[in-house]
Amino acid sequence: MGFKLLSKLLVYLTASIMAIASPLAFSVDSSGEYPTVSEIPVGEVRLYQIADGVWSHIATQSFDGAVYPSNGLIVRDGDELLLIDTAWGAKNTAALLAEIEKQIGLPVTRAVSTHFHDDRVGGVDVLRAAGVATYASPSTRRLAEVEGNEIPTHSLEGLSSSGDAVRFGPVELFYPGAAHSTDNLIVYVPSASVLYGGCAIYELSRTSAGNVADADLAEWPTSIERIQQHYPEAQFVIPGHGLPGGLDLLKHTTNVVKAHTNRSVVE
């Protein structure tokens, strides 16, 4: 069995187990497998329904001669939608809004960016022009300005110390501490036991640490421990890039980060 097929099978099995364990909360999309990078042309966006009122959005972007996937989250909030992270750029984010209108038909009224990198804030200006209120932590807003990236308009308070959590509509926002970046936030959907790890969490097929220019490698494993301790009931975990899975993604990420750190020390 090929690795790609095995990865998709694991996603399907995880979703099936969740649907059985929580039949009222989960209505997993039966329309197909989780979209992969090879299936999404740059400039297009796919939506994948995880649970009743919960979707991931998947886009792709060219970077350094390669094409990478990027995940975000959409959560229903009454007759409105909360968006977590842009679709990595203005063109993708405009396509995301169009796809949401086509498939869901509810307005996106608020959006949260989970850290300051372009795959999370690139497209904020498109959201703002569409009347979406954009939010991020003060740290993310400051770092985005320093980096020359787009800056969300509103500040999220109460997320300055490791372990801080605040309720934001249908989700809980959690600051686990520094990891992929010093400002990275985690998003949890309690009604569906869905954990969105953003770039602080890796997919299972990833074996290298990737972009760690703004990471705190020493603190990252401790931050992941905080996530595990705060959300032990999480059933569906979405990484910032690639295929979702279960809580095993947290341990896998820790292993990859520690291996990278150990290699760096040896070198």
Results as ranks from 00 to 15, higher is better:
Met1Tyr: 05
Met1Ala: 04
Gly2Phe: 15
Phe3Lys: 15
Phe3Cys: 06
Phe3Asn: 14
Lys4Leu: 05
Leu5Ser: 15
Leu5Tyr: 15
Leu6Cys: 15
Leu6Lys: 15
Leu6Val: 14
Leu6Pro: 08
Ser7Phe: 10
Leu10Val: 14
Val11Cys: 15
Val11Glu: 07
Val11Asn: 13
Tyr12Gly: 10
Leu13Gln: 12
Leu13Pro: 09
Thr14Glu: 07
Thr14Gly: 05
Thr14Ile: 09
Thr14Cys: 10
Ala15Glu: 06
Ala15Ile: 15
Ala15Cys: 14
Met18Val: 15
Met18Ala: 14
Ala19Phe: 15
Pro23Ile: 09
Pro23Val: 11
Leu24Tyr: 15
Ala25Lys: 15
Phe26Cys: 11
Phe26Thr: 12
Ser27Asp: 11
Ser30Gln: 12
Ser30Phe: 14
Ser31Ile: 08
Glu33Asn: 10
Tyr34Lys: 08
Pro35Leu: 07
Thr36Lys: 12
Val37Met: 14
Ile40Arg: 06
Ile40Met: 15
Ile40Ala: 07
Ile40Thr: 11
Pro41Lys: 11
Val42Cys: 07
Val42Arg: 09
Gly43Asn: 09
Gly43Met: 03
Glu44Cys: 06
Glu44Ala: 12
Val45Trp: 03
Val45Leu: 04
Arg46His: 09
Arg46Glu: 08
Arg46Tyr: 09
Leu47Tyr: 00
Leu47Pro: 07
Tyr48Gln: 12
Tyr48Asn: 11
Gln49Cys: 06
Ile50His: 07
Ala51Phe: 06
Asp52Trp: 08
Asp52Gly: 10
Asp52Arg: 10
Val54Thr: 06
Trp55Tyr: 06
Trp55Ala: 02
Trp55Glu: 01
Ile58Thr: 15
Ile58Gly: 05
Ile58Tyr: 06
Ile58Leu: 08
Ile58Met: 08
Ala59His: 06
Ala59Trp: 03
Gln61Arg: 14
Gln61Tyr: 07
Gln61Met: 10
Ser62Met: 09
Asp64Gln: 11
Ala66Cys: 06
Ala66Tyr: 15
Val67Thr: 15
Val67Ile: 09
Tyr68Thr: 09
Pro69Phe: 08
Ser70Thr: 06
Ser70Ala: 06
Ser70Phe: 04
Asn71Arg: 02
Asn71Tyr: 03
Gly72Val: 02
Gly72Thr: 02
Leu73Trp: 02
Val75Thr: 04
Val75His: 00
Val75Ile: 08
Asp77Gly: 08
Gly78Pro: 05
Gly78Leu: 08
Asp79Glu: 12
Glu80Met: 07
Leu81Lys: 00
Leu81Gly: 01
Leu82Lys: 00
Leu82Thr: 07
Leu82Ala: 03
Ile84Asp: 00
Ile84Pro: 00
Asp85His: 03
Asp85Met: 00
Asp85Thr: 00
Asp85Ser: 00
Thr86Ile: 06
Thr86Phe: 00
Ala87His: 00
Ala87Arg: 00
Trp88Asn: 06
Trp88Met: 02
Trp88Val: 04
Trp88Pro: 00
Gly89Gln: 00
Gly89Trp: 00
Ala90Arg: 10
Ala90Gln: 11
Lys91Met: 14
Thr93Gly: 00
Ala94Asn: 13
Ala95Phe: 15
Leu96Gly: 00
Leu96Lys: 00
Leu97Ala: 00
Ala98Leu: 14
Ala98Lys: 10
Glu99Asp: 08
Ile100Val: 10
Ile100Lys: 00
Ile100Glu: 01
Lys102Tyr: 09
Gln103Ser: 14
Gln103Ile: 12
Gly105Met: 08
Gly105Phe: 02
Gly105Tyr: 08
Leu106Ser: 08
Leu106Met: 14
Pro107Thr: 11
Pro107Cys: 05
Val108Trp: 02
Val108Ala: 06
Thr109Tyr: 07
Thr109Asp: 05
Thr109Met: 11
Arg110Phe: 02
Ser113His: 15
Ser113Phe: 07
Ser113Lys: 01
Thr114Asp: 00
Thr114Val: 00
Thr114Met: 05
His115Arg: 01
Phe116Cys: 05
Phe116Glu: 03
His117Glu: 00
Asp119Val: 04
Arg120Lys: 06
Arg120Gln: 02
Arg120Tyr: 01
Val121Gly: 01
Gly122His: 13
Gly123Cys: 04
Gly123Leu: 04
Val126Gln: 07
Val126Ala: 08
Leu127Phe: 06
Arg128Cys: 08
Ala129His: 11
Ala129Cys: 00
Ala130Pro: 06
Gly131Asn: 11
Thr134Ile: 02
Thr134Tyr: 00
Thr134Arg: 01
Tyr135Ile: 01
Ala136Tyr: 01
Ala136Asp: 04
Ser137Asn: 08
Ser137Cys: 01
Ser139Met: 14
Thr140Glu: 04
Thr140Ser: 07
Thr140Arg: 03
Thr140Asn: 05
Arg141Leu: 10
Arg141Glu: 02
Arg142Phe: 12
Arg142Met: 13
Leu143Tyr: 09
Leu143Cys: 05
Leu143His: 07
Ala144Cys: 13
Ala144Gln: 03
Ala144His: 04
Glu145Lys: 14
Glu145Thr: 12
Val146Tyr: 13
Val146Gln: 14
Glu147Asn: 15
Glu147Thr: 15
Asn149Met: 15
Glu150Lys: 06
Ile151Val: 14
Pro152Phe: 03
Thr153Val: 14
Leu156Cys: 03
Glu157Pro: 11
Glu157Gly: 12
Glu157Tyr: 11
Glu157His: 11
Gly158Trp: 05
Leu159Tyr: 04
Leu159Glu: 01
Ser160Met: 12
Ser161Val: 13
Ser162Thr: 10
Gly163Phe: 05
Gly163Trp: 04
Asp164Met: 11
Ala165Trp: 14
Val166Pro: 04
Val166His: 07
Arg167Pro: 12
Phe168Ile: 07
Phe168Thr: 01
Gly169His: 06
Gly169Asn: 03
Gly169Thr: 03
Val171His: 02
Val171Glu: 03
Val171Asp: 01
Glu172Lys: 04
Leu173Thr: 02
Phe174Asp: 01
Phe174Ile: 04
Phe174Pro: 02
Phe174Lys: 00
Phe174Ala: 01
Tyr175Lys: 01
Pro176Ile: 03
Pro176Trp: 02
Ala178Asn: 10
Ala178Pro: 14
Ala179Thr: 07
Ser181His: 00
Thr182His: 13
Thr182Ser: 13
Ile186Cys: 03
Val187Leu: 04
Val187Asp: 04
Val187Cys: 03
Val187Phe: 00
Val187Glu: 04
Tyr188Cys: 03
Pro190Cys: 06
Pro190Gln: 10
Ala192Cys: 05
Leu195Ser: 00
Leu195Trp: 01
Tyr196Gln: 00
Gly198Val: 06
Ala200Ser: 06
Ile201Cys: 00
Ile201Leu: 10
Ile201Ala: 03
Tyr202Phe: 15
Tyr202Gly: 04
Tyr202Asn: 05
Tyr202Arg: 05
Glu203Leu: 04
Glu203Pro: 09
Glu203Ser: 07
Leu204Ser: 10
Ser205His: 08
Ser205Asp: 14
Thr207Ser: 12
Thr207Ala: 14
Ser208Asn: 14
Ser208His: 12
Ala209Pro: 10
Ala209Gln: 10
Ala209Thr: 11
Ala209Leu: 08
Gly210Thr: 04
Asn211Leu: 11
Val212Pro: 10
Val212Leu: 08
Val212Thr: 13
Ala213Ile: 12
Asp214Asn: 10
Asp214Gln: 10
Ala215Asn: 07
Ala215Trp: 05
Ala215His: 06
Asp216Gln: 09
Asp216Trp: 06
Leu217Pro: 08
Leu217Asp: 04
Leu217Thr: 10
Ala218Trp: 11
Ala218Leu: 13
Ala218Met: 11
Glu219Met: 11
Glu219Lys: 08
Trp220Met: 03
Trp220Tyr: 09
Pro221Phe: 05
Pro221Arg: 08
Thr222Lys: 12
Thr222Asn: 13
Ser223His: 00
Ser223Ala: 10
Ser223Met: 02
Ile224Trp: 02
Ile224Gly: 03
Glu225Arg: 13
Glu225Ser: 12
Ile227Asp: 02
His230Phe: 12
His230Gly: 09
His230Leu: 09
Pro232Asn: 08
Pro232Glu: 07
Glu233Ser: 13
Glu233Pro: 05
Ala234Lys: 04
Ala234Glu: 03
Ala234Ile: 09
Gln235Ser: 11
Phe236Trp: 14
Phe236Asp: 05
Val237Thr: 04
Ile238Arg: 02
Pro239Asn: 02
Pro239Glu: 01
Pro239Ala: 03
Gly240Cys: 02
Gly240Ile: 07
Gly240Met: 05
His241Cys: 01
Gly242Pro: 03
Gly242Phe: 03
Leu243Gly: 09
Gly245Gln: 01
Leu247Phe: 11
Leu247Ala: 15
Leu250Lys: 00
Thr253Met: 02
Thr253Phe: 00
Thr254Phe: 15
Asn255Ser: 12
Val257Cys: 05
Val257Ala: 05
Val257His: 01
Lys258Phe: 08
Lys258Tyr: 09
Ala259His: 09
His260Ser: 14
His260Asp: 11
His260Pro: 11
His260Ala: 14
His260Arg: 12
Thr261Phe: 10
Asn262Val: 10
Arg263Glu: 15
Ser264Gly: 12
Val266Cys: 05
Val266Glu: 15
Glu267Asp: 13
